[in-house]
C-alpha cells in the first residue's frame, strides 16, 4: 500500500539483506512493505521522481501547440497526448509514494531545482513539425528506455511502466503519422520536418544518459535489476529502430558517421556532444528557466484551488458529522 513503507531498515545480519538478495536473484518483485537496503530505496525514489518530473515538464513543449494545432483532429490528439503525460507523471508519483516519499515534497524539490527532469524537455518547439518529431523520437526513445523497466525489480514501478508503455505507443504513432502527412504536403512542410529532425536527433540520443564509462550508478542499478540494460545498449537499440523509419519517411538523420555495420549487425553512429548534455543538465539549456518558471507559476497559481477544495471537504465532513449527531440525538 502507498504511504506505509514500514519495515525500518535493519542491519544485514538479521537475514533481511539475504531475503532481499534472494528475491532479486529469483526475478521476483520487491513490494512496498518489504525490507530493502537504504541505497535501493534512495535510488528508486530519485529515479522514479525524476521520471515523474520529466512527464510533468514534458507537457510544456507540446502543450504550447494545442491552441495552434492546424485542425480539430490534431488538436484533439495533442490534447489527449498531453493529458496522458500528466497521467504518466501521476502514476509515477504514486509509485514513489509507496517508498515513503511525500508528494508535496517531491513537487517542492522539482520547483526548487533540487531534483532533475529529462534534459530533452529543455529544447524549444519551433514549429508544428516538432510535435511530430517529439512523438517519433522522444516517445520512441522513451519506449526503448521503458519497455525493459516493465521488468524492473520494484513492483509498483514496473506496474506503472506497463501502463505507461501501452500509452506511449499511441504517442509514437501519432507523431509518425503527423510527419507522414506533412511529408506528403508542400516543399515548405517537408523542409519543416527535416529541420525538426535535425534539431531533435542529437538531444534524443542524449536522453539515454552519458556513455556507460561515465555512468557511475548504472552498475549498481543493474545489479539491483532496477535497470535492465546499459545507456549505450539502449541508445544503440534506438538508432537501429529509427534508421529504417527515417528512410520510409524520407528524411535524413543528421549524422555523417551513421552507417550499417555488417559485421556487428547494427548501425555505427557518431558521438553526441556530451558537453552540451552536461550544460543542459546543469540548467543552461535553451528553455530550462522557462520550463521551471512555468511549473512554479502553475503550482503557485493553483494553490487557492487546492486550499479551497480542502476547505470545502472539511466543511462537508463537519456538516455530515453534525447531521449524524443530530440524528442520534433525535433517536435517543
Amino acid at each position: 500500500m502507498a504511504a506505509q513503507h514500514a519495515a525500518a531498515d535493519a542491519p544485514p545480519d538479521t537475514g533481511l539483506q539475504r531475503d532481499f538478495d534472494r528475491t532479486i536473484a529469483r526475478e521476483q518483485r520487491i513490494e512496498p512493505r518489504d525490507w530493502m537496503p537504504d541505497g535501493y530505496r534512495r535510488t528508486l525514489v530519485r529515479q522514479i521522481a525524476q521520471h515523474a518530473h520529466s512527464e510533468i515538464i514534458g507537457m510544456q513543449p507540446e502543450g504550447e501547440w494545442i491552441t495552434k494545432a492546424p485542425s480539430l483532429r490534431r488538436k484533439a490528439i495533442l490534447f489527449a497526448k498531453v493529458q496522458d503525460e500528466a497521467g504518466h507523471g501521476l502514476y509515477l508519483y504514486a509509485a514513489a509514494e509507496t517508498l515513503g516519499a511525500d508528494r508535496a515534497d517531491l513537487t517542492e524539490r522539482l520547483i526548487e531545482g533540487r531534483q532533475k527532469y529529462s534534459s530533452i524537455f529543455n529544447y524549444p518547439t519551433l514549429s508544428f513539425a516538432d510535435v511530430g518529431v517529439i512523438g517519433w523520437f522522444v516517445d520512441g526513445a522513451a519506449i526503448c528506455n521503458q519497455v525493459p523497466l516493465c521488468r524492473s525489480s520494484y513492483g509498483p514501478y514496473a506496474r506503472a511502466m506497463v501502463r505507461i508503455c501501452k500509452e506511449e505507443s499511441f504517442h509514437q504513432r501519432q507523431g509518425y503519422e503527423l510527419l507522414m502527412t506533412m511529408m506528403r504536403g508542400t516543399e515548405a512542410q517537408r523542409a519543416a520536418v527535416q529541420d525538426a529532425v535535425d534539431r531533435w536527433w542529437w538531444p534524443s540520443l542524449m536522453m539515454f544518459g552519458p556513455p556507460d564509462e561515465n555512468s557511475p550508478n548504472s552498475a549498481q542499478s543493474m545489479a539491483w535489476k532496477i535497470k535492465r540494460h546499459s545507456n549505450d545498449e539502449l541508445r544503440q537499440r534506438f538508432v537501429d529502430m529509427t534508421v529504417p523509419q527515417a528512410e520510409k519517411l524520407g528524411v535524413t538523420l543528421p549524422d555523417p558517421e551513421l552507417r550499417w555495420n555488417e559485421e556487428r549487425g547494427r548501425h555505427d553512429f557518431g558521438t553526441p556532444d556530451w558537453s552540451e548534455l552536461q550544460r543542459v543538465i546543469a540548467g543552461d539549456g535553451p528553455c530550462n528557466a522557462e520550463r521551471m518558471a512555468r511549473r512554479r507559476a502553475a503550482h503557485e497559481d493553483g494553490a487557492w484551488v487546492r486550499e479551497a477544495a480542502a476547505a470545502h471537504a472539511a466543511k462537508q465532513a463537519a456538516r455530515a458529522a453534525r447531521a449524524a449527531r443530530e440524528r442520534k440525538g433525535a433517536a435517543a
Binding site: 502507498a2 502514476y91 506496474r159 477544495a309 471537504a313 465532513a317
Partner: peptide, 11 residues
Amino acid sequence: VGSLHAADDRM
C-alpha cells in the same frame, strides 16, 4: 491499480 490525492471521496 494505484493511488492518487484528492480533497474528498467524491473528487
